[in-house]
Simulated assay, not measured.
Amino acid sequence: MASELVNVIVAFAFIYLLVRWFSKGNDNARADSPAAILGFSPRKATDDMIATVHAAFPDIPRANIHYDLLKTGSAEVTSNKILERGVLDAPPAAYFRAFPLATQQAAQGQPTAVSSTPTPAQPRDLISRFQLEQRVAQPEPAAGATAVRASWDASAEKREASLRERKAQMILEARKRMAEKLQAQTAGSS
């Protein structure tokens, strides 16, 4: 009787250890799953959804869009969030373990940026972005001669041209003030 009890206890211990050993392999597989890495159950985010949101908001990095789509599962909700807040949260480092950058680049066929630093295709400064190189090289007109009066024009083209000109003037004035500030600093330090 006692030997049978010992055999039963040994058999249960063996089965317990065997089950535990096999389930340990499953825990590792679960720990590597995107849900375990990200801390939430990711929803489906297709390349079409990412492309749709990125087409509407090209200044938002694709990784940020993909991360938000994994949380929301909806291009509309992600778009509304961008419209309300102006930005999307950058994905945490764990996101890149679950979705490696190289995999994203290969799937999308283009580089993925996390930050909003300009890519080589984007101009690095406002002068080149707004194509004001020739206006910087021109001598300054008399004070007040370049002021554009803000008025409401009847045609959309005139309003757009007026807005473009005001932006250009603001950029050129800021550049002028910065040059004067740097000149004053160098004169003060000499």
Rank of each mutant, 00 (worst) to 15 (best):
M1C: 06
S3N: 12
S3W: 02
E4Q: 12
L5I: 07
N7W: 02
V8N: 05
V10L: 11
F12R: 14
F12D: 13
L17M: 10
L17W: 09
S23V: 13
S23L: 14
D27C: 10
D27T: 06
N28D: 08
A29W: 06
P34H: 12
A35E: 10
S41H: 10
S41Q: 14
R43A: 08
K44A: 05
K44F: 03
A45N: 07
A45D: 06
D47S: 07
H54D: 00
A55H: 00
P58I: 01
P61E: 04
A63I: 04
A63K: 04
I65Q: 02
I65T: 02
H66Y: 09
Y67D: 10
D68Q: 10
L69P: 01
S74I: 09
E76P: 14
E76G: 15
E76F: 15
S79N: 02
N80Q: 15
K81C: 03
K81D: 13
I82N: 05
L83V: 05
V87R: 15
D89M: 15
A90Q: 10
A90Y: 07
P91D: 06
P91E: 08
A93M: 13
Y95I: 02
Y95G: 01
R97M: 11
P100Q: 14
P100T: 15
L101W: 10
A102H: 04
A102M: 11
T103I: 08
Q104H: 06
Q105M: 00
G109L: 08
Q110A: 13
Q110T: 01
P111F: 05
T112V: 14
T117Y: 03
P118L: 03
P118Q: 00
A121L: 05
Q122Y: 02
Q122V: 05
R124H: 00
D125Y: 05
S128K: 09
S128W: 12
R129H: 08
F130H: 08
Q131H: 02
L132F: 09
E133H: 12
Q134W: 10
V136G: 12
V136I: 14
A137T: 15
P139W: 11
P139K: 09
R149P: 07
S151T: 07
A154L: 13
A156K: 10
R159L: 07
R159F: 01
A161M: 03
L163D: 01
E165A: 13
E165N: 06
Q169S: 11
M170R: 07
L172M: 07
L172D: 02
E173H: 05
E173Q: 09
A174W: 03
R175D: 02
K176L: 09
K176F: 04
R177P: 10
E180T: 11
K181Y: 11
Q183T: 12
A184D: 12
Q185L: 15
A187D: 01
A187K: 06
